[in-house]
Simulated assay, not measured.
Amino acid sequence: MLFAITQSTALVIVLLDGNPLADRLSAAGLLVLNGLWFICYGRRLVEEDRDDWRGFVYAAGSLVLFAGAVWFSGSATFALFGLVPQIYMTLPLWWAFFPMVLFVFTPQILTYAAGADPALPWPAALLIIAFSQAFGWAISRVADQNKLRGQLLERIEALTIEAERARWAAEIHDTLAQGFTSIITLLQGAQPNVELALQTARENLREARALVAANAPSPLDGSSLEDALRRLVSGVSLPSSFRVIGNAVPLATSVEVVLLRTVQEALNNVMRHSGASRVDVVMRFDSDGVSLEVRDDGRGFGDAPEGFGLRGMRARLEQVGGTLSLSSDEGASVLVEVPL
Rank of each mutant, 00 (worst) to 15 (best):
F66L: 02
L152G: 01
L340Q: 01
D221G: 08
Q199G: 15
D117F: 04
A214C: 03
A27K: 00
L102H: 06
A210E: 02
A169M: 12
E195Y: 10
L21F: 13
N268E: 11
I5M: 13
D23I: 09
E47N: 06
E337I: 07
G309H: 08
E47S: 12
A248Q: 03
A113Q: 09
F301G: 12
Q319A: 11
V194L: 10
F103D: 01
S8F: 11
E337R: 08
A190V: 03
S287K: 06
L317I: 13
L317K: 08
E164M: 05
A208R: 08
R50Y: 06
P85I: 03
E256Q: 11
L45A: 06
S237I: 09
A10Q: 00
A116D: 08
W37M: 08
P99I: 00
A228D: 08
P250Q: 03
A213M: 07
D49R: 13
V32E: 02
W95D: 02
A216Q: 11
S140F: 00
E203V: 04
E48Q: 12
G235K: 09
A10E: 03
A76Q: 00
Q199F: 15
A10T: 03
D297Q: 05
G136C: 02
E171I: 09
S62I: 02
L31D: 00
Q133W: 04
G29N: 06
A27I: 00
M283C: 05
L15E: 07
A69N: 00
M1E: 15
A252Y: 15
A138D: 06
G115T: 07
G136V: 02
E47A: 11
A332C: 14
T323D: 12
E293I: 04
L63F: 01
L159G: 02
A266N: 06
I161W: 03
F98P: 05
A114W: 07
V336Y: 03
G179L: 04
A248M: 01
V263Y: 06
L16D: 04
N146C: 07
A213T: 02
D288Y: 04
P217D: 01
D52R: 05
G115R: 01
S274R: 13
I13P: 14
R44F: 13
D280E: 14
P305G: 05
S240E: 12
E256L: 04
L340C: 09
V279I: 11
L30M: 00
T175E: 05
F78Q: 01
D329L: 14
G312M: 13
Q145W: 01
D221F: 09
S254L: 15
S224K: 05
I129H: 03
